[in-house]
Design a protein around this nucleic acid. Structure first.
Lengths: 331, 331
DNA sequence: AGTTAAATTGTGAACAGTCACATATTTTAT
DNA sequence: ATAAAATATGTGACTGTTCACAATTTAACT
């Protein structure tokens, strides 16, 4: 038996003012005398009044909501930090976990719910033009996490190519000349860029870069990929793996064949997830701070929402190589 | 220069019907002749009309939103699955990442936004009475993930006590008699229950259960906890760790002291995260399926939302012991 | 004191839907 | 054919807020 919630007008009656004055009080900023304000405040507390967000939303056409559009589950790291940052900046945070076909209708839905800003986490390279995308979102500002470097889409990202370059150079410096790769999905921004960084560095050093198997970033896929390399009798003394999870899987496959890391094969991963430091041996990897990315993306987006003049730009962070026990110099 | 979106009335004019008829069309179910329906549909498409969700929300007082309230970041596993399940059941999904002090105001906010259902992920044991909580949520149905077993709060959970019992019994069966524990936070539902299950099983077997250090579920905390045990010269041949992450940290600490797993110390973890199978040695652990929990919680909640008569109950799942290389019989 | 300006408060309309009910039309039963 | 029931469509009122503007009160200057 839910008893009807009190409205602006109930409060107004209680406090002997007009509803407009109450509206001013709940929206803080306007001119209203301290005396009246406190009287209204008292009435609000007495009645347990809470503004009806639906009515405010209809009127203002602003929901104070940031929505992230996810095509796939690999991005859990970001979510908490994005939610928390949104909260702290005064926004609600919602998630649309969708398939690629649902993309357009999701954007339409976001517009009809007056979502203030969108964070896009695309897997595959899709629309890569700012104007086109802005048209689809019906003018809702957005920030993409990971994107094509140098594109005109507002984005926050680590320089994946540079990360892979660091990994490759590290192995080269250790004297490795025959190296394999287990890449992430090549049509993903991150998977593709890491692959590119790897390939070009090897190429620039006159090394063979043909030993490469594509994985899907999941741990088991690393296991399968390494088995495939070994089944093909690939000869390598080091392997670059597209992310740390797959590196763990690859390591298991090596052990099962009696190969030791790093004595027989050196491994470099990517991401530096917390487990990597405690793995045996410690995993040499390229560090990205996912929480930072999540926070920056939300801050960037909220900046665009509240400050429409914000110039469109990409925020590119530089990853760092973390050397641990899984790599050693070629003896 | 956003051109005003068309409204019900614009469509009505275009199709030469009343706005009420258009309303019927967009809400599907009502009686409206096929001919009129198609005429209206055509007008909708022609104008690119999309119903204004804010106006619908105000009128219907239903947002079609499931909101999860998170006090802390340890629950990423659930989020994607919950978001996806909500989506599939026709609900939006939002996250409030809050601190304990923000709890009450968050519930009030949820009510004023007409959130349909809440998923609560409490850390510490808080309010444990259904009526009290229902009162706070202003009648919004909710499901808690992890709760006190046997409470009257609707919840989806694994039997943590039973999980710990499995772990303890496994070690006892292997012949271990001197065993240590690195627990999760004792005031958490899961951390506390695992501790309880562990303690009681040891007690029932007449074994000493005093070697116990409390951690915080993070990987580094496992490392620190194990160092504390070793610094105190605790004598044990096996250790039960409150979750897999901490088990990895504990393992590192053991290695640094030259102790081998499982030859010198057996380890049992909890959760069975993907990395556990690929760890060296493979981690014996108690498996919980987080994705399943997330899905069940949302399904349960949506059931309650759409079917107010749903009887309040707890859904308790039984975890499973996964034996790997980190445990061995006492020689 | 009288005028002007500033601060404070109030009024009517609008937002874009849904609901309850009224009316018109068609179908079915007697 | 006529009444009754079912179906299809329309009308007016209402949801709870904000906006633009009007009206009132108070303060500030000559």
């Amino acid at each position: 038996m839910k008893t009807k919630r009190p409205t602006l007008r109930d409060v107004a009656r209680e406090a002997n003012v007009s509803y407009q004055t109450v509206s001013r009080v709940i929206n803080d900023n306007d001119h209203v005398s301290p005396l009246t304000r406190s009287r209204v405040q008292k009435a609000i507390n007495a009645l347990g009044f809470r503004p009806n967000r639906a009515a405010q939303l209809m009127q203002t056409e602003r929901s104070h909501t940031i929505e992230v559009i996810l095509f796939y589950s690999g991005f859990n790291h970001f979510l908490y930090e994005m939610a928390r940052t949104s909260q702290q900046l005064g926004y609600h945070f919602s998630i649309s976990a969708i398939t690629e076909e649902e993309f357009v209708s999701t954007l339409e839905s976001a517009a009809s719910r007056f979502v203030d800003g969108l964070i896009l986490l695309p897997v595959t390279r899709g629309i890569e033009d700012y104007e086109t995308l802005m048209d689809l979102t019906d003018g809702i500002p957005f920030v993409q996490i990971t994107a094509k470097a140098g594109s005109n889409i507002p984005s926050v990202m680590y320089d994946q190519i540079q990360g892979a370059r660091l990994a490759a150079q590290h192995l080269i410096d250790l004297g490795h000349r025959q190296m394999a790769e287990i890449s992430g999905p090549l049509q993903n921004y991150d998977g593709g860029d890491r692959h590119e960084g790897w390939i070009t560095t090897l190429k620039n050093n006159g090394l063979d870069y043909s030993m490469s198997v594509e994985g899907d970033f999941n741990i088991d896929s690393g296991y399968r990929a390494m088995n495939r390399l070994l089944d093909e009798d690939a000869e390598f003394t080091a392997v670059f793996v597209g992310n740390d999870s797959m590196a763990f899987g690859a390591h298991t496959a090596l052990r099962e064949r009696g190969l030791c890391v790093p004595q027989d094969v050196s491994i470099v991963g990517f991401d530096d997830i917390p487990e990597s430091a405690h793995f045996v041996p410690g995993l040499t990897t390229v560090r990205q701070d996912f929480e930072l990315i999540g926070r920056l993306a939300v801050e960037f987006l909220v900046g665009m929402v509240e400050n429409p003049g914000t110039p469109i730009h990409q925020r590119v962070l530089q990853p760092k190589l973390i050397v641990r026990g899984s790599t050693q110099a070629l003896t």
